[in-house]
Amino acid sequence: MIELKDVCYSYSNVNALNNINLNIEKGEAVALMGPNGSGKSTLLKLINGIISPDSGIYEFNQEEITHQKLQNNKFAKLLHQKIGFVFQNSDTQLFCTNVYDEIAFGPRQMGLNEIEVDKRVKDCLELLNIQDFKDRTPYHLSGGEKRKVAIACVLSLNPEVLVLDEPMNGLDPKTQRWLVEFLVKLNKAGKTLITSTHNLELVQEISSRSILFDETHTIVADMPTEKLLEDIDLLIKVNLVDQYYHTHKVYGKL
């Protein structure tokens, strides 16, 4: 479904992605892991068509995604409908006057009639358990509520792939647990999930496969999450975990 071949990307001569080769199948749940600044968010932006590779090939559903193609309005819009992106900071994603309009923003643009739009919005409100907020201003919600609204906005577009940038950040443990269970459900419903995360305790539950970046912006491991979490030496080597702390304790039992 998503294939990257020798993809490189840099910001004003600063390398962000270095020779990335990756293949993600439909229905997979993949986690991107790595230290800060290793290129995870850049890869998510590239997958969503916000940026295009400096070199290499990015294919979605066997079609190459290039800068030229993304200039084509219709092509870009179709890609954005198929790949939903939940931003790390939910504040950046919400700009409508109330939660209802926020969720209805996408379906209305898709040309659905108001009855269908209303159904989608109500379904999303129920799915994310945010019915009580439908008339509230998104900006004044709590962090967890905003994250739920942001997910609902993306879900209402019914994307095939859901890309989440650090979705657990800033959430309390209860909301984190709820989100984990919700993502598992979405994956079971057939959605492909790509999640960037630092949360080693929850990664195993939201992904069956993990891709590990190091500080050279390269993929150093692509393996089942369970297996990756056992390889503490590798996690220490890429500076994802602390050498002293994690050789004396096993995460998951902290």
Binding site: K74, M110, L127, E181, K185, N187, A189, Q204
Partner: peptide
Amino acid sequence: MDNSREKIIDMPQWLLQTENYIPQADKDT
């Protein structure tokens, strides 16, 4: 992934189907 944590969340039918959507052109200049 942990199957034991499965909770009943009914997914709406439209979310289980692949969207057959053809976008209209719009100006994003």
